[in-house]
Amino acid sequence: MENVLRNSSVKTLLSMCMLFVCCFLSFASTADEKKNIPLQGQWEEGKRSISINYPVSISWDGTCLYIESLSPRSTIHVTLSNGVENVCDETIPAGSCPATLYIGALDPGEAYQLVLTNQFGDRLEGTID
């Protein structure tokens, strides 16, 4: 009788674990995927006669901004604004990319202006809708 109860408890525990895993996987698959944010502007990092372009890219998943840069030279200042107030005003030290900035949920249907600048005077702009 004791073995039957033990087997029943193990089966119940395994069933609960499987249910948890299925729910977790279902939730994970419905999470927002990262969307690349097109940027416009110049990012030259004080070019000299011999230089390499260091592109900066940024993506958004609904709650976080993901900033990537191949350059260890630029300190990147990130500003995200709805036109009235700044939602994000962060500085990413040189050589600290990739970086993730938690923004939280933005108001649906509202456009947000994204601006990235560096110490060389370079500026990139994009929009999150």
Rank of each mutant, 00 (worst) to 15 (best):
E90M: 12
I58V: 12
A105D: 10
G83A: 06
R73Y: 12
R48T: 14
V87E: 03
I76V: 02
S71H: 01
R73M: 12
C97V: 12
N53P: 09
T91A: 13
V84M: 11
P108D: 15
P72I: 11
L106W: 03
T100Q: 15
L101P: 00
I67A: 00
P98T: 05
G46P: 02
I92V: 07
D107G: 08
C88V: 13
S71E: 02
A105F: 09
S74R: 01
Q42G: 06
T63V: 14
D61P: 01
L70E: 10
K47D: 12
L106P: 00
A94I: 10
I103E: 03
P72G: 10
R48K: 14
I52T: 14
C88E: 05
I76Q: 02
E90H: 13
S74T: 05
P98N: 06
T79P: 01
T75P: 00
C97R: 06
T91R: 14
V87C: 05
E85F: 08
G83W: 10
E44I: 15
V56P: 02
V78K: 00
S49Q: 07
P93H: 08
K47W: 13
L70C: 06
I50C: 07
E68Q: 09
Y54C: 09
K47E: 13
Y102H: 13
W43L: 03
S69D: 02
C64M: 11
N53H: 07
S59D: 11
W60N: 01
N82K: 06
W43Y: 06
I52D: 11
I92Q: 02
P55R: 08
